[in-house]
Every structure is written in C-alpha cells, then in structure tokens.
Design a protein around this nucleic acid. Structure first.
Length: 280
DNA sequence: AGGTTGACCTGGACGC
DNA sequence: TGCGTCCAGGTCAACC
C-alpha cells in the first residue's frame, strides 16, 4: 500500500519514538521470503546496535545503526500491506507479525520498555541489513528522489523511452517512491494521458508533470504528518490517510473539473485512472 | 537493453 | 451464511 508519502510519514514517526535506543534482542518469524538477508544475519547485525536515525529512501525505510563503533543499516520495505509499529511488550502481538525488536533506552538494560514490530499479512514486504554501511555501501535506492530531482535530470530520465509515461513513473530505477495512486494523480494534474509514450512528451509537459508530482507528494506528506500515530503506535489500526483523489479509484464518477466520467484502463498490469477530456 | 507479463501472498468486497 | 470471484497502493524473475 504505502508509497513515498506514507513511507516518509511512518519513518518520521518511528524516528521520533525510538531514535537513540538500543536493540536488546530480536525475534523473527520462520517465513523465509520476508528476509532478503538471512534471519541469522539480521539478528546478528541488529542485536546490541544503537538506532541513530530512521528515514526514507524511495519506498524503503532506512534505519542507521551503530554496531560497536561501526555503522550498519537495517532496511525495511513495506510491500503492499507491511506495517511498522512501536508497541509496549504487553500489547497483544497482531497476526502476521514477522519481526520484533526489543528496545531499551539504556545500552546495558536487560529488557526494554518498547518494541518495534514488523507486521505484514500479504508478505510482499522485505527486511534486510547492511552489515558495514560506509559511504559507498550505504543504501541509496534504485533511482532518483522525485522531491529533489532537478528539472533537467527529470527530463533526461524519460528521453527515448517507448513505454507509456504511467509505466515509466512506476519504474523505481528511474524515480523511486512513486506508486500507483500518485502516478495517476500527477498525470491528471498535469493533463497528460497515462498511455502517452514517455519519450514523446514535450519539455513543457514534463515540466508540468514534475511540478504536479512534487505537489501531490508534498500535500500527502503534510496530511500524513498530523496522523502519524494512527499507523505507527500500538496496533496501527487506522491505516493510511486518504488524499482528496481526483482520479484514483474514482472509475465512473464525474471528473472534479469537467464532470466527464473517469475511465479505468490497465497499463503495465496496473489499474490506471484518468479523465478522457482533461488529459490529452 | 528496454519492455512486458505473470508470480508471489492474504484478505476484504461483492454477487449469487 | 457461505462460497466463488475479483481486486488490492509492491517488486522481481523470466521472457521477447
């Protein structure tokens, strides 16, 4: 489920709650596909490490660690249904919990007062560690950051690409962090049809697209900031915030601008929504 | 190499 | 109520 704004909101919320704490012990489930590193490596690297910073790169939550004197990293991808929860140990463990980190604010404490839990029903999420995270091996993500990419680089990304612009926006090795909702919304706000060939968009269109994409992402981050606790604390039941979507999941409903019914098509195997009048 | 398709999972919504 | 079908905001391997 989570795209860039959701992942950023979660990372910030988790950072506020657990940075500076030490991981005393780690439990992992026995579902091997959840782990990109082996569960043993994960336990090895995390145990007795201190959490310095929690942040987002693309759709991945990155936790910078100090292990002994050396930097390491813990990488969490939430997939479609992954959740990262800060709980107390007495909070009931939800179904589909795949990892639990017991934390303590003092390095030498025997047991902690908080836990970081990774819960993922559908198991598309992935956990991994970088044992020695110097500047060259620190996780940088597969592509470019949509919020900070300069216009010239943005335009270059799509040059000569024959794939539909919708598919190109979802390609994480170009821009990382953009998912299905914000791709559809950004194309709507820039007036571009999802099936247009990426390499055939004009400079003016790509300029509009970058502006629209950054605006929808920033607006969603603003919205999420006020409700972090809904999905980081305890059970995290409330789920993700809803932006005021213009096209996503509005098939058949009137366009908010021109009242024409919103169309749904499939592009690159993904459900895609657009206004046949407002988008050219 | 770039582009496309299907596989990976579970659960919720919907129709009969 | 129960059962079957379809759908889901994510990758990634395997193909062309």
């Amino acid at each position: 489920m989570p795209e860039l704004p959701e992942v950023e909101t979660i990372a910030n919320g988790v950072h506020e709650r657990i940075h500076g704490q030490t991981i005393q012990s780690v439990w992992t489930s026995n579902k091997p596909q959840t782990f990109k590193s082996t569960p043993d490596e994960i336990v090895q690297v995390l145990t007795k490490s201190r959490i310095d910073r929690v942040y987002r790169v693309g759709k991945t939550i990155v936790i910078d660690l100090t292990r002994g004197k050396r930097p390491a990293q813990f990488l969490i991808h939430l997939g479609m249904t992954g959740r990262l929860l800060v709980s107390t140990p007495d909070t009931p463990i939800p179904p589909h919990t795949h990892a639990i980190l017991s934390l303590s604010s003092r390095p030498d404490a025997a047991s902690g007062n908080k836990e970081l839990r990774f819960v993922d029903a559908r198991r598309f999420g992935r956990l991994s560690v970088v044992a020695s995270a110097d500047d060259e091996t620190k996780y940088a993500g597969p592509g470019k950051e949509p919020l900070t990419i300069p216009l010239a680089d943005f335009i270059t990304l799509f040059r000569n690409r024959k794939t539909p612009i919708k598919a190109a926006l979802l390609n994480q090795s170009l821009l990382h962090g953009v998912g299905n909702i914000y791709a559809d919304e950004a194309l709507f706000h820039s007036g571009i049809r999802p099936l247009r060939q990426a390499g055939r968009l004009t400079r003016a269109e790509l300029t509009r697209l970058r502006t629209a994409l950054q605006k929808v992402l920033r607006d969603a981050i603003k919205l999420g900031g006020s409700s972090v606790s809904d999905y980081v604390d305890a059970d995290g039941v409330a789920g993700f915030f809803q932006l005021h979507h213009h096209v996503y999941s509005r098939t058949g409903q009137p366009c908010r601008i021109c009242k024409t019914p919103i169309k749904r098509i499939v592009v690159g195997g993904r459900s895609t929504h657009f206004c046949p009048i407002c988008q050219k």
